[in-house]
Design a protein around this nucleic acid. Structure first.
Length: 425
RNA sequence: GGAGAGGUGGCAGAGUGGUCGAAUGCACCAGACUCGAAAUCUGGCGUACGGUUUUACCGUACCGUGAGUUCGAAUCUCACCCUCUCCGCCA
């Protein structure tokens, strides 16, 4: 949610900022709502003040045993007027609130203007894609040949966009999550957290737009609960409705959860394999920081995610998303894209976003700073990394001519010393 | 699922219709005392929204949530949510 104060005091900056991401701010509607709200609010509060004073007077007169019939007669009709006022004001404020909540974040000045992902800017590239002296297979063929990925059984159980992993591939999947968590907690200073996988609608609306989310999320039938689309939702909401002490910052959390997404808008996209699933595991890293530190913290967090790819020796590139491609709540986003030999291209494996105060305003998450003033926190999160897609990247990048897959060195201890996934005999 | 208790400021905890945004204690901040600290004393100390003469003053709202009764609700009524205890069931 944008800052209402800023809209009132400095509308041009907001309009220009949104224009950079090709969003047209409806100035006429905003001004009309604001004017009406202001008029109605002043009127309502003034009458209420009058009524409060009269009631207080009645109380004092009764205490002294005086006759109050005259005053009470005067006040009698005010209640109904006031009720009508309050209803009207409430409706106006709700409209204004709805209006505000549908507006996306203003892109940070660093973000390049662009229309689509084609305009994203590569800021760095790491590693060199390996050349293979045989025809590379994709992760589906590799995994099925190893007896480790089973889409048929998954389809029987749950339908499309699910997978069953078996044996050493299932273990590799687990090893990856463990390795990521250990790296972030032991080397990057994050605190490991375990959280609910179902959350209420306040949590969803705190980090994104609930209306937008409805199409892409899974709701629990008969309850106001949703399956989390990412650990960002429960973890960021730790600070909802809180005023934290400046000494508690920065907060850094690492969290491994499954993520559930309906993928409603992606029919026909990535239908093969594990790239796009209704359920996938992810290790999420989240930072909650003081406003003045957020830009640097975002860079740091992005590097933390990159570290995982480097340790796994997977070639990747870091993309700065353009204004046309950043998410609703984001002010600035880096996507990490890993090299997938079978697709002969880089594919997203992590998204690291800086939200500034956008989520904090929705969540009422604030900090009492050193000067004793209350201000909104800044929130940052990123995938560190998506476990399923990392598994895909390893199967494809580490495949051998005989169908086996070499285990990256850092994962060997997590695999109980196994250095290679072998073809079944 | 059954029975009971309860939800008040950062925390603890009073308050059962009227100068209650709310006693008191703790915590916190500032000052005094002190060489310094502790102890003690004095003062301050919620949030959101709005207005204005915009680092200040004034107003409105907020005692789990929503609705109701009333001139007036933390206090009374109803519904809902949540927490805790015991029993049952259960990974």
């Amino acid at each position: 949610m944008l800052d209402l104060q800023q809209l009132r005091k400095d509308l041009p900056t907001v309009i220009n900022g949104l224009a950079r991401r090709h969003v047209v701010f409806d100035e006429a509607q905003f001004r009309a709502l604001e004017d009406e709200r202001k008029k109605r609010q002043i009127e309502t509060e003034e009458l209420q003040a009058k009524r409060n004073a009269a009631s207080k007077q009645i109380g004092m007169m009764k205490a002294k045993g005086e006759d109050t019939t005259t005053v009470m007669a005067e006040v009698a009709g005010w209640g109904d007027i006031q009720k009508a006022n309050e209803v009207a004001l409430g409706e106006l404020q709700e409209k204004l609130n709805q209006f505000l909540r549908q507006i996306p974040n203003i892109p940070h000045a660093d973000v390049p203007v662009g229309k689509s992902e084609l305009d994203n800017v590569e800021v760095r590239k790491w590693g060199t894609p390996k050349t293979f002296n045989f025809t590379v297979k994709d992760h589906v063929d590799i995994g099925e040949a190893l007896g480790g990925i089973d889409f048929e059984t998954a389809a029987k159980l749950s339908g499309a966009r699910f997978s069953v992993l078996r044996g050493s591939v299932a273990r590799l999947h687990r090893a990856l999550a463990q390795f990521m968590l250990n790296t972030h907690t032991l080397e990057h200073g994050y605190t490991e957290v375990y959280v609910p996988y179902m959350v209420n609608d306040h949590c969803i609306d705190g980090v994104t737009n609930l209306e937008k989310f409805r199409d892409d999320g899974f709701k629990i039938d008969g309850r106001d609960m949703y399956l989390i689309p990412t650990a960002e939702v429960p973890v960021t909401n730790f600070v909802r409705d809180e005023i934290v002490d400046a000494k508690q910052l920065p907060m850094k959390f690492a969290c491994h959860t499954p993520c559930f997404r309906s993928e409603a808008g992606s029919y026909g996209k990535d239908t093969r394999g594990m790239i796009r699933q209704h359920q996938f595991d992810k290790v999420e890293i989240v930072q909650i920081v003081a406003p003045e530190n957020s830009l640097a913290a975002h860079e740091e967090l992005t590097r933390h995610a990159e570290t995982i790819l480097q340790k796994l020796e997977l070639p990747y590139r870091t993309m700065l998303l353009c204004t046309g491609d950043i998410g609703f709540a984001s002010a600035k986003t880096y996507d990490l894209e890993v090299w997938l030999p079978a697709q002969n291209t880089y594919r997203e494996i992590s998204s690291c976003s800086l939200y500034e105060a956008f989520q904090a305003r929705r969540m009422m998450a604030r900090v009492k700073n050193q000067q004793g003033k209350t201000e909104y926190l800044h929130t940052i999160n990123g995938s560190g990394l998506a476990v399923g897609r990392t598994l895909v990247a390893i199967l494809e990048n580490y495949q051998n001519a005989d169908g086996s897959v070499t285990i990256p060195t850092v994962l060997v201890p997590y695999m109980g010393g196994v250095t290679k996934l072998e073809m079944p005999k």
